[in-house]
Design a protein around this nucleic acid. Structure first.
Lengths: 333, 333
DNA sequence: AGTGTCCATATTTGGACGTG
DNA sequence: CACGTCCAAATATGGACACT
């Protein structure tokens, strides 16, 4: 009876859902692979069958943590921006469909607000950056090659030292403590000293590439043969195999992504770029990894129904970023 | 001329790659969406355009972290937890719109965005405060009344002094620069000194490029492009060296800071964090799940080739990650 | 660079059925 | 239950061109 047009709506029949999943899964995986090869891009696709069985597909030379990490690196601003972009797209769709406006107004306003906030954030970010920069010179004097600067710093330090000593002396001098006491412990008392830290996905140290059977190399044709009957299809990639590593690595990622990240005090390594990034990135997930059903507002894809049940971190912000793409007016079914 | 059969091989023409990406991206996104809806599953798709622009697509009720996390832990246990019922209503409501837009979503998304940004701003504000506070300790030691702290600071300063001296001495007298130059000017870059511009920053030589992160990001052309994407050019995380001038400076700095050189011992315990990070990572890696290659494939009918790859986790319940998929009989081209 | 449109053809995939 | 097979209708998408 030939193919039947299907309404894009949850298939109520469990069996059909499974069969369809199976078929379409193959289809989408193939598409993903083709896309990654044709356009030579990074791509990662994860899906869970109706039964919960997970499937991962990576581009020819993609590696999971890399992709996720890269994505995770997007700053909140960026995410927000992207989100707005997708909203724009929707807006456009709306317009086209001659659909109503209320929304547009809303969007407009929202955009405005968002923009403001974004600017503010940007400003703060810049300030922070500046400050960190300044601090960095003190933290890593060895990075300075200008002897004049060093000399100046030295003098400054001497002066500060004197100041401190003077101040100290002005205070009660506890038990005959030696002023010259060799310094020992790190200045942990400084504000914000905190050990917690998030790791960055892209940090090679944190996510060592593990190339087991597949990984990167796998991406190559030769690899392709790997489990498949070496077909004519050399392009078959099969990064998927990486799962193994991918999975294990995930843990890390998850940590990072899932956002628990007790906010480290901005105290210390402000200087550390990585951290900075992390902070920025994580800023959205200040909470501990608590997964909670956040059925409330998972942004659903327009036009579709949703049955959600998502475990979103309460703070959930970050998470969703780009969803772009959606719209495509459904063809009338 | 109708559609032409395309060999699944990297498109050498840059332009075609982009066009193709654009088209296929839409296609695959649509497929992903449909699949998630039809089969009511969780799905996450991330891809980067040939230019590096990231795109994320989540299932109807998926949450990025959740998906990644779930995948990571392979904790399928409650997968079944679908609360379809409650959604039926929503579904119905929007279904009749026959298009993809869901106002609720707009609201949700935007709200979230605003929320995110707000949080981010707050966070940055806090960080700034902290940082300033920290700086103030050094700028106004007289405000400190804890002798221990003063002592620690003093020691730290001494240490820094030594470091600087050592570094200074270790330097060869820079090219013809007069060492005797009178050093008089105020040390404007001293901590606490709010002089806006870091004189040091201006000197590229002071900021040896260390491309750590960069290298990574660099691999993806425009990934960093997101900065440029922003009209105004934000520097939220600037890894893009070529970005803006003002940004590039930061970039350098950050790179430098993010470097792996040994942290100075005197001050902030950066090391601790590092260690901590490592530990965390490790623990995560020893994820209970242990994978095994279960490569089994069977050359199917002539002309087909299937490769399935599944990794089963011994411990995890569902633990099976399947990666499969690839090759579908490539019709002889 | 990124999209949208047209058209003709390449692919995908419901349904129904068969197998382990 | 998970797939492989068939067939015909539903879709996706190269190539060319236009717009922004």
């Amino acid at each position: 009876m030939g193919r039947v047009k299907l309404k894009i709506k949850r298939l109520e029949n469990t069996s059909s859902r499974q069969v369809t999943y199976s078929k379409r899964k193959n289809g989408i995986l193939k598409k993903a692979r083709e896309l990654s090869i044709l356009c030579d891009i990074d791509i990662a696709l994860i899906m869970f069958s109706p039964t919960g069985k997970p499937t991962l597909c990576l581009g020819e030379h993609s590696n999971f943590e890399e992709v996720i990490g890269k994505f995770a690196q997007l700053t909140p601003q960026e995410r927000a921006k992207r989100k707005l972009e997708s909203l724009e797209a929707l807006k456009k769709t709306f317009k086209k469909l001659d659909h109503d406006v209320n929304i547009q107004d809303f969007l407009g306003a929202s955009t405005q607000t968002v923009e403001e906030l974004t600017n503010h954030s940007r400003l703060l970010q810049t300030q922070l950056s500046e400050t960190h920069k300044r601090l960095s010179y003190w933290t890593h004097p060895d990075k300075i090659n200008n002897i004049e600067h060093l000399r100046a710093m030295e003098d400054s330090l001497k002066e500060s030292l004197n100041q401190i000593r003077a101040h100290k002396n002005g205070m009660h001098l506890p038990l005959g403590m030696s002023v010259e006491q060799p310094q020992a412990q790190p200045i942990s008392w400084l504000p914000g000293n905190d050990s917690q830290h998030m790791m960055l996905a892209e940090d090679p140290n944190l996510l060592p590439h593990r190339d087991l059977e597949c990984s990167t190399d796998a991406s190559i044709p030769s690899y392709s043969g790997f489990f498949s009957a070496c077909k004519t299809e050399v392009d078959s990639s099969g990064q998927e195999s990486n799962a193994l590593n991918e999975l294990s690595r995930n843990a890390c990622l998850r940590l990072q992504l899932g956002g628990q990240y007790p906010y480290p005090s901005y105290g210390f390594n402000l200087l550390d770029e990585k951290k900075l990034k992390t902070e920025t990135k994580m800023s959205l997930h200040e909470n501990p990894v608590d997964f909670q059903v956040n059925s409330g507002f998972e942004p659903t894809r327009p036009g579709y129904d949703t049955s959600h049940q998502s475990w979103a971190s309460t703070s959930g912000p970050c998470a969703i970023a780009v969803f772009d793409q959606q719209s495509y007016p459904q063809q009338p079914n």
